[in-house]
Write a protein that binds this DNA or RNA. Structure first.
Lengths: 119, 119
DNA sequence: TCATTTGTTCGATAAGAATGGAACTAATCC
DNA sequence: GGATTAGTTCCATTCTTATCGAACAAATGA
């Protein structure tokens, strides 16, 4: 866990814990953040990922996602830019993010129960 | 969420929530239960999955895993037999369990399942 | 019927996490 | 310097979760 140039501390690959990742993803706002980042081609700042909630609350959620290794934050001017640590996660837990994001061809889509034939 | 013949209530496929699943998996004992079940060819009773902890504590963990849809419990005599709801989870969130259990060929080493039976 | 085994439920306590206002810091621009 | 913007930190409150003993319930077997 090294403190970056930007002043944020991010865990390194070797110290990732599945439990911490699951805890990070067990909150609805945090899951929305992850999905928004996954859908975005470019890093996003915290404001754009606030969903109308208070800054202090969201700052808390960003910290947890960072600590779990799910996202990476850097300063750019006044803003803090966030991106998924997708490469690292894919190396360490192959298939996990794809499954979460429903990138399987089949579709674990969004939590919308997929209506195939009423089985 | 129907209450079974056995008296346990298990959510049905359509109502599974990723958040609940993640919460269920964010506890170390619950993750051990899941891994042990995944490694076992046959259902296991609660006692065999207690890891030396008090029954009341573990009963709580089983309830959470059941409510999240991760495992299925039935009564057999005095025992409660548990198994992973692997088929359902795989349909609804393809790849998720495989990723968690490190069944990717590569390896999510570190906190991975010990492979009892050669794949 | 009584005792045993297996697990659940209850209840109290303690630990942890989420929330949001207020004060604060850092970068930028005037 | 002063004002603005973007987030963080601090703090108190509230909510949720974990833990585990004790009492309980169901199935089985003597």
């Amino acid at each position: 866990m090294a403190r970056d140039e930007s002043g944020f501390s991010h865990p390194d690959e070797g110290t990732l814990s599945l439990e911490a990742i699951f805890h990070a993803l067990s909150d609805p706002y945090r899951l929305r953040i992850v999905r928004a980042l996954a859908a975005s081609a470019v890093p996003m700042n915290c404001g754009d990922l606030s969903f109308g909630r208070p800054k202090s609350s969201m700052s808390h959620h960003f910290r947890i996602l960072r600590a779990a290794g799910v996202l990476h934050t850097t300063s750019q001017g006044v803003e803090h830019m966030n991106s998924l640590r997708r490469d690292m996660l894919d190396r360490r837990f192959p298939g996990l993010m794809a499954a979460i994001l429903g990138e399987t061809g089949q579709s674990a889509a969004g939590d919308h129960p997929r209506r195939l034939t009423p089985a």
